[in-house]
Design a protein around this nucleic acid. Structure first.
Lengths: 191, 191, 191, 191
DNA sequence: TATGAATGAGTATTCATTCAT
DNA sequence: GATGAATGAATACTCATTCAT
C-alpha cells in the first residue's frame, strides 16, 4: 500500500508554476503539466481537484509563503517603520528573484476559480504592510493619512519595477529607490 | 483599418471590453461577444482577424486613447512637474472611472497574442510620464535618481488603489494621496 | 445564411439508432455517430444537447411513432377487441421488423438521462392497449380483471418472442400465437 | 472459483448488484462498488477479472439461483402443468421480491461482455419452462403449438408486470392474473 | 491477501473559425 | 457586408486496471 506523497504534490506545483508563468492559463495543458512534473496525467487529479484549483494552489501557496517570510523578517527588525518597510521591500524583491514566475502569475489577469484563497493571501500581505505603516504613524515616524491605500502601493511598485522596468536594474538599487520614494513620501512634515 | 461600418466595429469592441474584463480570456466566447454586441458571430471576423487580435485591439486602443488624453492634458498644464504629475494621476483615475474594465484588462495576465501593440502602448504611457519626471528633475523641482522606474510606479499605484483598495474611497482623495506620496517622495532634499 | 436542417437531424438520429442498438450506450462514441451520420462531430451538438439527449430522442421518438401507428390502426379496425388486439400485435411486430434496433433499444437497460420522454412514450403505449382491453371488457368480448397489467403483457410478449425466441419463427406465426394466447386467456368464461 | 474468502466475494456481488440495478452500467464505478462493499478497489480484482465479468457474475449467478429454485419447486409439484406453471410464476415473483434489483438488471440493455454466461442462464430458464409446457401438451392438459415461444412469455409477463405495472399490485393477485391468462390461453379447445 | 496511489487510454464537449447563402 | 450552421482540432477529466507495499 502506498501513501499519498507530499513530495509529488510539490513536483506538480513546481511544474505548474513554471508553465502557468510562461503562457496564459488557457494555453497550459494538463498533459504538459503532467509531463513536466514527470507524473501521469491522472496523478494530477489525485492531488488537485481541477486545473483551476491547481492554479489557485500554486499562486495562493506562493503568496502565503511570501507573507510568512515577510512576517518573519518583521519580527526580527522590530518596530521601526523605516526598517520595517525596507525589510518588506527587500523580501518582495527577494521573492521576485527566487520565484521569477510568481509575479507574472500574480499580475495574472482575472480571478481564476473562485479565487478565495488568492484574495485572502493578498489581503494578508496588505494587512501586514498596513500594520507596519500604522505603527509608524502611531510612533510619529510616518505621516500617512491613508495607510490602507499605501499598503497596496508597496507590492505594486515592486511588481511594476520588476515586470516593466529595465531588466538590468540591480535589485539593491531598485529596492533603495522604492524605499526612498515611500519613506520620503510618508515623512512627517515637521521632520 | 478602413472598414465599411466603424460603428459596428465599436459595438464589438465595447462588448468585448466588458466581457474580457468580467471573466478571463479563455472564458470569453466569441458567441457571447457577438450576442452582446448584437451582431452575428461571423461579423466579428469582418472587423477582427481573430480572438487574440480583438483582445489586443481592445486593450491597445484603450491605452492609446489614455496616452492621447494624458498628452493633451500635459500640453495644457505646461512644464510644471507638480501640476504635470497631478494631471497624469487625474487622467489615470478618470480613465479608470470611464472604463471600469480597462484596468482589470490591463492587469490582465499574460501577454495574449504577441502583445506587440499592447507592449508598445504601455511603453508610450511610461515614456510620457518619464518625460515629465525628467523635466522636473531638470528644472530642479524633483529629485529622482530613477525616473525610468518611477514612471512605472504611477500607473501601478493608481491601479493597485482602484483594484485592491477600498471601493468606497473617493476618487479625489485617492488622487491626492498618490500625488502627495509621489511629490514628497521625489522632493529635492534641499527644499 | 444557412438554416437549421431537419434532414440532418434525422441523419443523426438514424445513425445513432443503429449504433445504440448494436452496442451498449457507453460503447457508442459520438465520434462514431458523427462519422456514421456523415456530419461533423460538432454538428451533433447543434441538434442535440448531449449524448444522453440524443439517446432519449432516438428511443422516445421511435416509440412515439409506434404509438401513432397503433392508434391509426385502431381507428381503422373499429371497436372490436379481437381485431384491435390483433392489430396491435401486428403493429408491434411490424415495428420490430422495420426498426430491428428499436426493441433492442427499448429493452435497453436503465433509464438513460432523466428518461421522462421515454417513460411517457411507454405509458402512452400501455394506455392505448389498456383502452382496447377495457372496451372489450365493457362489450363483453373480454373477461379481464386487470387490464392495467395485461396492457403491459402485450409488448412484453412481442419483445420476448423477437429478442429471445427462435430467430426463424415467421412473423405471422408469432403474431398468431401471441394473439391466440391473449384472446383465449381473456375469453369470458361463459362463452 | 475457489477463492480464499467467499464471504468477501459475496459482499462485492451484493454491492455490485445494487449499484448495477440503480444506475446504468457505465455509471457504476468500481470505486463506488469497492466503497459500498467496504473493500479496497484492488480487492475487486482478486475476485473478479474485470468490471464486465463482475457484472456477468452478478446477473448470471442470480439467474442460476433462480433456475435452481424453480427446478426444486417443480420436483415437489410433480408433473401437473397447471401446478407447474403456478409454481414457476410464483418463484419468479418471489425472486423479484427477494432481489428487487435482479429484474432491473435482467431487463438490462445490451449484452455486456460476451454475455455467454448470461445467455446460457436465460436459456436454462426458458428450457425449464418449455419442458413443463411440453409435458402439459403431452398429457393433454395444454394446447400449445409453440411452447418454445410461450416459454419466454412467462418471465416476460412477470417482468413487465413488476417493472411497469402498478407498484401496489399485490403479488398474489399479479401471480393469479398471469397464471390465469396463461392457463386459459393454453387450455385445450376440447375442454 | 488486501490495499489505494499511480497511471494513461479513451471520450464528451467546447469553441474559434470557415463559408454557403 | 452580414449571418449562423457546420466543422474538427484541442483538452479537461474519468475510471478501469495495475502494482508496489
Amino acid at each position: 500500500m502506498q501513501t499519498p506523497n507530499p513530495e509529488k504534490r510539490n513536483q506538480i506545483k513546481a511544474a505548474a508554476a513554471r508553465l502557468f508563468a510562461e503562457v496564459p492559463f488557457h494555453e497550459v495543458t494538463l498533459e504538459r503539466v503532467a509531463t513536466t512534473a514527470k507524473v501521469g496525467k491522472g496523478t494530477l487529479y489525485v492531488y488537485f481537484a481541477s486545473k483551476e484549483q491547481l492554479y489557485e494552489a500554486v499562486v495562493a501557496e506562493g503568496l502565503a509563503e511570501l507573507v510568512g517570510r515577510v512576517e518573519g523578517r518583521l519580527q526580527q527588525t522590530g518596530a521601526d517603520a523605516c526598517q520595517g518597510l525596507s525589510a518588506i521591500v527587500d523580501e518582495l524583491l527577494g521573492f521576485a528573484d527566487r520565484y521569477p514566475h510568481m509575479f507574472t502569475l500574480m499580475r495574472s489577469g482575472h480571478p481564476i476559480g473562485n479565487d478565495t484563497e488568492l484574495a485572502a493571501a493578498r489581503s494578508n500581505l496588505a494587512a501586514t504592510i498596513e500594520r507596519v505603516l500604522r505603527a509608524g504613524v502611531a510612533s510619529g515616524a510616518l505621516d500617512d493619512p491613508h495607510p490602507e491605500l499605501t499598503a497596496h502601493f508597496v507590492p505594486a511598485m515592486v511588481r511594476s519595477a520588476r515586470l516593466y522596468g529595465p531588466a538590468d536594474a540591480p535589485r539593491a538599487e531598485v529596492g533603495r529607490h522604492i524605499v526612498q520614494v515611500l519613506l520620503r513620501g510618508l515623512r512627517p512634515h515637521s521632520s
